[in-house]
């Protein structure tokens, strides 16, 4: 976003420290709101990797959130600890992404987006109907942590914060790596990428697996945090839609975009919910339309344009 790398790293570390200590200064309500924001930022990063950087819109990415949540619920229901079940949840999501990804990642553009919705819908039905394992459409409960609510919420706040930081850092490192150039080339021109020696199928499948990994961990944390989940809730296409909007508003293909977008959208909908209770859907819809119209590159894109313009102006002044 800004040009000085050291300043950036410093600002980010200060930001993380502020967030670590924030729960001491705000109410429990806001701790929960910000935990949700972190969660949305993680899911949105998964979408950003696929869509913002690689050009494949994973409209059905909520399925990995659902898989993560349900594997956690089932595993903990069988007496496993959360930390034992977490790798299982992530591994299952990765397997699902590879199994589904191999056939559908051959599809371009619209078709890929739609196929993932179809898969998400089919998985939802499976979870709803496999009542004996999943508890069916009525949902299922998880063990509750035996501590005061305040301590529990702080625990999830910190866990979600850590997940967001790790996700963002990992994706940042991926984007700067050889693999990152590979996936960005796929977005830029898949045919050219292929002719340059990039195994596009391999890159697409791996990118989706990484996306699935982080999304499923967010789902696992969410399930444990809520201690009750229903299939319609964790496989909701709205999760993907919200996080796509978040990515667009923050700035697609920008590493801090999803985080900024998650804060803007979530805080905005807090305000909308409380002030326009009956019209919150319409206000949200109109807000999205306005943002898509007037800030098409997202907030980070708009800032980058502003900085670029200012630099050009400065350069002109100097040359005069």
């Amino acid at each position: 976003m800004f040009n000085n790398k050291k300043v950036n790293i410093f600002l980010i570390i200060v930001g993380i420290i502020i967030f670590i200590f924030l729960p001491r200064f705000v109410s429990g309500y806001w701790v929960r709101v910000i935990t949700t924001i972190f969660m949305y930022a993680v899911i949105s990063q998964g979408i950003n990797l696929m869509s913002g950087y690689m050009g494949y819109l994973p409209f059905g990415n909520a399925m990995f959130f659902g898989v993560g949540a349900y594997i956690t619920a089932i595993g903990m229901g069988k007496g496993l600890s959360f930390l034992a079940v977490l790798p299982l949840a992530a591994l299952t999501a990765i397997l699902v992404s590879i199994l589904f990804g191999l056939p559908v990642l051959r599809l371009r553009g619209h078709y890929f987006a739609i196929a993932t919705i179809g898969m998400s819908g089919a998985l939802l039905s499976v979870v709803q109907n496999a009542t004996e394992i999943t508890g069916g459409a009525m949902g299922t409960t998880l063990p509750i942590i035996d501590k005061s609510p305040e301590v529990t919420y702080n625990y999830f706040y910190l866990a979600m914060l850590a997940l967001m930081v790790i996700t963002t850092l990992t994706i940042y490192l991926i984007i700067k790596s050889k693999f990152g150039f590979g996936i960005r080339s796929i977005k830029a021109n898949e045919e050219a990428a292929n002719s340059m020696g990039i195994n596009t199928t391999y890159h697409k499948v791996i990118a989706w697996a990484i996306s699935a990994l982080f999304t499923s961990i967010a789902g696992a944390l969410y399930a444990y945090w809520m201690s009750f989940i229903g299939p319609e809730e964790v496989f909701d296409v709205m999760i993907a839609v919200n996080t796509i909007v978040i990515m667009l508003i923050g700035g697609a293909g920008s590493i801090l975009g999803p985080i900024i977008g998650a804060f803007v959208i979530s805080l905005l909908s807090e305000v909308v919910w409380s002030t326009f209770l009956e019209y919150h859907l319409a206000v949200l819809g109109i807000t999205i339309i306005i943002i898509v119209f007037f800030v098409p590159k997202g907030i980070t894109g708009a800032i980058a344009d502003f900085v670029k313009k200012r630099e050009l102006r400065l350069r002109k002044k100097v040359s005069v």
Binding site: F181, S185, A188, S195, M196, G197, T200
Partner: peptide
Amino acid sequence: PYQIARKGLTRTFQVVKPLIGMTVEENVLV
């Protein structure tokens, strides 16, 4: 195509196919 490119046989395109959204240096870097 990618396997052939890796063996050391490659091509340019009649209609240039730049990697849009990247700089000249990034294109060559890929």
